[in-house]
Design a protein around this nucleic acid. Structure first.
Lengths: 208, 208
DNA sequence: ATCTGTCTGGGACGATCGTCCAACCTCACG
DNA sequence: CGTGAGGTTGGACGATCGTCCCAGACAGAT
């Protein structure tokens, strides 16, 4: 083991923890399993980080910092109408889940664990705020690219969109039914397209 | 401790396990914590059940057996139009979550744990199938009572509805934002109401 | 070359976990 | 009242957990 500054070790441990949690579950992400994944001796753990829970906080931050909206936004550009754009974006997200189910499941486990752990509660709030921020970006980017407006506040719509993706993920993790998931995506796209309104200069009025 | 048949002990342990998991999290639902909740000695545990994971399977079955749709279906009857019916049902569900957040969180933890545990995977499939069955009941009951039809297969809509309730729950658990949750319910009701079509004898065709 | 502070890591601590065994008690039956 | 079968349980087993102590190794300043 070469000499590595503590902050760098800390980041490596967070990545290793995410890898273990994705592959074997958060419960299996023990300090020993994490350092084994990172190829470090056990004692390096508490030299780089005060406690396991503190590292899990880093993991949440690590995930939240990632930018995963780019691929989805790109998909939107291939669509002709808003409904198809939403459908493609949701299918793209579904593909991400299917490509690495453990990863998405680890996210849920991480959220649940944080909610139950003193000092880590409060993290899910930021985590989901970031999710919605990402969703909002996709929503406004899609509207701009295809030239329409949302007839409700996009921020509220972002929350609904994250709800749908979370629900989509949980349902697919539970039964791995691809066909049913895609039907659900169709319906969700149908439903969300109902909030689309043709762009019209300064006509759009959105009162409560 | 009086003499109690093993099957009855097993049921009591499942209820105790659910209580502990709701209050302190699934990770805290150790064999010792469960028997303490049930007021039994530790050794009774493995007399009544072969392993902890087997008991958690019982807990899933216990939850799945509960009927929680009744209250929601009742709410629907107070509504005039479908959109309001959906909104009231979702708000009723949200109230259930708010009344016992730990309970709903324990459900998620249970699902995640089952998915990661050999021998317990397959349970989430049944669990979510039952959720959707319940949702389907609410959907058809609401449509009959208010006299409308769904323009898409209600079974597909049931999956979407469970997705929404799951997402609603996760989002609220993460930030406990009541106002935002209710705005999301409004939007969801708006979106789902788009699948309502006036009842029309034998006109409804559902191909695809 | 020596010193100082940072980094490395072997090994062990106490706590808690799931599981199990062997002894205990209770009751129906003769 | 004796007895055997079966429900009950105290106590302990090995495994694993998070955490930490402390000795050794190395880099840069003197």
């Amino acid at each position: 083991m070469p000499r590595i500054p503590a902050t760098q070790r800390r980041a490596a441990l967070a990545r290793a923890a995410l890898a273990v949690a994705s592959r074997d579950g958060l419960a299996a992400a023990s300090t020993r399993a994490i350092v084994a994944e990172a190829g470090m001796p056990l004692a390096s753990f508490h030299y780089a980080v005060a406690s396991r829970d503190e590292l899990l906080g880093d993991v949440v931050a690590l995930v939240v910092a990632e930018e995963r909206a780019a691929a989805l936004a790109a998909l939107v550009s291939h669509a002709r109408d808003p409904r198809e754009a939403i459908r493609l974006a949701l299918l793209g997200y579904l593909d991400q889940v299917r490509a690495d189910p453990g990863r998405e499941q680890a996210m849920f486990e991480l959220t649940q664990h944080a909610l139950r752990t003193e000092g880590l509660d409060g993290l899910p709030r930021e985590q989901y705020a970031r999710y919605r921020e990402t969703a909002l970006d996709v929503l406004v980017a899609g509207a701009r690219r295809l030239g329409f407006d949302w007839r409700v506040p996009p921020a509220d719509l972002a929350r609904l969109l994250v709800m749908v993706t979370d629900g989509l993920t949980l349902a697919w993790l539970a039964d791995r039914d691809d066909a049913a998931a895609e039907r659900a995506v169709d319906l969700a796209a149908d439903a969300l397209a109902g909030f689309v309104v043709a762009r019209a200069g300064a006509e759009g009025r959105d009162d409560g």
